[in-house]
Amino acid sequence: MLQEISNTMHKKPKLRLVALLTAPILWLVVAYLGALATLLVAAFFTIDSFTGNVIQTFNLGNFHDMFTDAAYKNVVLRTVGIALLVTVVCTVLAIPMAFYMAKIAKPRSQKILVALILTPLWASYLVKIYAWRTMLEPGNGVLDWLLGPLGFSSPGFGGPAIIIGLSYLWLPYMILPIYAGLERLPNNLLDASGDLGAHNWHTFRRIVLPLIFPSLVAGSMFTFSLSLGDYITATIIGGKLQMLGNVVYQNFSINLPFAATIATIPVTIMAIYLWMVRRTGALASL
């Protein structure tokens, strides 16, 4: 029986293709595109202002509200700013770490380091953020206790706390692609650059950076998009500061269509981001 199936499959490559791709395509279409489409459609609905029931008639009121209320412009700018800063912080921290792992550490410690980078991913997101809440607690948090004697203090809950928290959470997602990119980078290119008279910084800027750029882009897609959509970190250590995700979260129970409208913003930003990345050509060499 199995033999027969595989024989038929072998003779009909088209059937083989269909069998292989049906499940993933269905998944992609229904779960992914379907959800996006529903989101987009819902953004044009409105709600009964009293009962909160969704009224399915097309109108642009939500978009009007979103664009006219300065608060939403602020929250978009703030969120994009945070996502960019998180990406920058992650990149700045990840490059030297990944470089050490890929090019300097011995093969044995290399494996241990990769494992160490991966371990935090096993811990619950919430546990980690609540841990940061204890660390950042103004007055009696760990950070204040540590930095107090040096004359510094914890930034408390708010924007800096969110950036610290998110950078901490997403750092592995930046390190791993850069590490993989550096692994692929032949050592003798670095030797060659030095040989031709380039100092280390010059070698980094002219050889390493351009060659791991696709990895940076891959990492930044994680750090940027994950930050853009996050609301839990902001809830727990953001103090009274809110991000786009919080607006969606706040509204989805009260006013689903408006939440959908807001949710189109990160989707649009990501689309723009990907389009810009595509123009750099980095996606082609991933």
């Binding site: 202002s49 209320d69 300065a70 608060a71 929250v75 009274k240 706040q250 009260i254």
Partner: peptide, 16 residues
């Protein structure tokens, strides 16, 4: 002012 407006005002306040 109906509740829906309260919701919007609150959302606006929280995000400003």
């Amino acid at each position: 002012v109906p509740y829906a407006e309260w919701v919007k005002a609150w959302s606006s306040l929280r995000n400003s």
